[in-house]
Design a protein around this nucleic acid. Sequence first.
DNA 1: ACCTAAGCGAGACGGTACGTCTCGTCTTGCG
DNA 2: CGCAAGACGAGACGTACCGTCTCGCTTAGGT
Lengths: 206, 206, 206, 206
Amino acid sequence: VKNGAEKARRSIGAKRNPDSAEAILEAAEALLLEAGYAGFSIEAVARRARAGKPTIYRWWPSKVALLLDVYRRQKRDIDYSDTGPVEQDLFRFLKSLFRQWRETPAGNIFRSIIAEAQTDETAAKALADYSQGARRYTARIFEQARERGEVAAATDPEQAADMLASYAWVHLLTNRLDEDDEAIRSAVRMLTRGMLAGPSDGAPPA
Amino acid sequence: VKNGAEKARRSIGAKRNPDSAEAILEAAEALLLEAGYAGFSIEAVARRARAGKPTIYRWWPSKVALLLDVYRRQKRDIDYSDTGPVEQDLFRFLKSLFRQWRETPAGNIFRSIIAEAQTDETAAKALADYSQGARRYTARIFEQARERGEVAAATDPEQAADMLASYAWVHLLTNRLDEDDEAIRSAVRMLTRGMLAGPSDGAPPA
Amino acid sequence: VKNGAEKARRSIGAKRNPDSAEAILEAAEALLLEAGYAGFSIEAVARRARAGKPTIYRWWPSKVALLLDVYRRQKRDIDYSDTGPVEQDLFRFLKSLFRQWRETPAGNIFRSIIAEAQTDETAAKALADYSQGARRYTARIFEQARERGEVAAATDPEQAADMLASYAWVHLLTNRLDEDDEAIRSAVRMLTRGMLAGPSDGAPPA
Amino acid sequence: VKNGAEKARRSIGAKRNPDSAEAILEAAEALLLEAGYAGFSIEAVARRARAGKPTIYRWWPSKVALLLDVYRRQKRDIDYSDTGPVEQDLFRFLKSLFRQWRETPAGNIFRSIIAEAQTDETAAKALADYSQGARRYTARIFEQARERGEVAAATDPEQAADMLASYAWVHLLTNRLDEDDEAIRSAVRMLTRGMLAGPSDGAPPA
DNA sequence: ACCTAAGCGAGACGGTACGTCTCGTCTTGCG
DNA sequence: CGCAAGACGAGACGTACCGTCTCGCTTAGGT
């Protein structure tokens, strides 16, 4: 990224050197992009970033913590608009999330994180923390809809966000991010309107 | 399983020794049950099965192949009853699925396969095949419900099964298999009735 | 040594803070006493002395320099009495030397210096200087004995001191400082009377 | 040593590959020769021998064990002849030992071993075992002399060997392997005849 | 009845990565 | 300018597995 002949980074005193953090995150991202998760090791990141391993371990207690930081560092371009109607909001959200996961390294990084969490206890914890935060954030779409009176007062926004995220995660994990608009809309419809037969046979009551 | 003092297995001539295969699969399964995917290594399986590593590599070209064999060997005991009402069927299904995942190696095995599928192409293919089959199978609950007129004719059973499976998978992957009955019932309700506000504020239209 | 709750030392201006030097030397000494040379690292000394590593490096350019300073700081309490008879003098000398090496940091410090001198040129020089001095000093026991006519006029006091010191050093280096009195007396006897068979079969000629 | 393009060594079955052992010992020796003890690390040996670190740890439990093996592997050209007279035997022994220590890597290797033993517990043990063996071996010179009636029956051969070895070790450790013949002869004389003044003033009783 | 072929357990091999330790250098911010 | 503090790049430590190899054995099946 910089010129290869750059000077070795040094300590800048008894505080974190942001250059090192930057170099480490960049190296991690590049490795994930070039060689996938298989090529991603603390050793390799250190080598590429010209950083000492202890420097990485100092700031990222585990591989996943680093991975999550790389994931977070991706420029987000997710459409979280919660202006309603809710079905439109959800469609836009899923559409833009799938696109980002498809077209940037973010998707593969997040897949790696989920995979790692199946092996490593601390990874599982880190993922749980992260996904709870994300869930809470997404829940705002449902909260706004509830305030607008669009969805039933009894709806639990977090539960709804959980359901929504599950749908997205599993599509990511099974390489099905290329669903067409109709499939996504249909999934949203099931979440919002359910599937029970009614007077108008499942049409929205209103 | 057998007595610990058993004789060392030997070759039974120029053909595969089924006792060894059995011992290897059993050891693998036990490791997955006891320590999860983290404790699952060819080295550990060989040690526990008192088998040579080459014997494992001879018959299972990769870790994933062994994993998949262990998975296939699992006995399923899931309640797929589709007698209706559909919400009851779904509740029973999730309940028994979560229990099996919690109490047998199946959960850890399945988690492992999902994790491995993020890296390994074979695993991805196997997972795709398997999950499509499972989805189709689960879809029967919704098909039956449709035939009984319980759910709207427009409901896509596979799509519904996909949604249901996503909810289950993500709970497995994030160590949330211990949801109480009310949470499961609430998730089922969201799938079946949706969340939109109606004349009776979210009550089922019928 | 001091109360653990003491305030952090600070600079006392643009000159060396003797408190820090003192704390560093004390910490180094304590570490050598407690854990031997294995536990002696600049890192550990700094930690224990609550000093910054650069402070140590500022005043002691190398590990060896600090080691030598710690050694010089040791109080000696060796019985150098040269009143005769010479075998008694030598026995008392070895006895008190072994005791001091066993019971104070001096033994570990000296071992460390010898070890370091095998690698480090400065240490080798310092050790050579020191040991020559010590040899000359010890030689006085033999000189006095010669003046008293106790030992042969041809005896080279420095050579004898060298032999004596060698015996002591090697016992230090091989953890054999706990020899009983008889073993020490026997060693002294070999030095003084030799081992050749004589008219009275090894008895002193006189 | 061999041509650099040699094939990678492989396992030769469930038993030690002597080629690997050889390559490791050669690499270790070369490193000690070229860079001294400072450049000697398991890591470096493995790199140079094109061996895996575990292969080294499998056969040499510690750095010193390897070091000792390298030392033992040196072609020995020590004159252990015990034909008498004993003073001649001892002179020849010391002379040839000093020469070997001076002119081959053996001296520096042995210095390293002694140094390492000051730090590492297992090293100390290994050195103790080795030096006891060597002492017992050297003691034979004195035993033979005793059988010939040359030295007093009360002489303890091991004690004498200890004294002799101490003199040699300390000369090695303090870079004094270049003593001239007279100094060595004089040291031997002190061991054999002692220093006490006698009727003939220290002359041999016989 | 012999011989060959392949499977078996065992375990060593060259590697790579792990997470921790200490090294000696550097900067900061306070006094 | 000295000081405590502590981050930094570097690299060794000893361990765990990886996937491959060869050994010495055992048995089955073809001749």
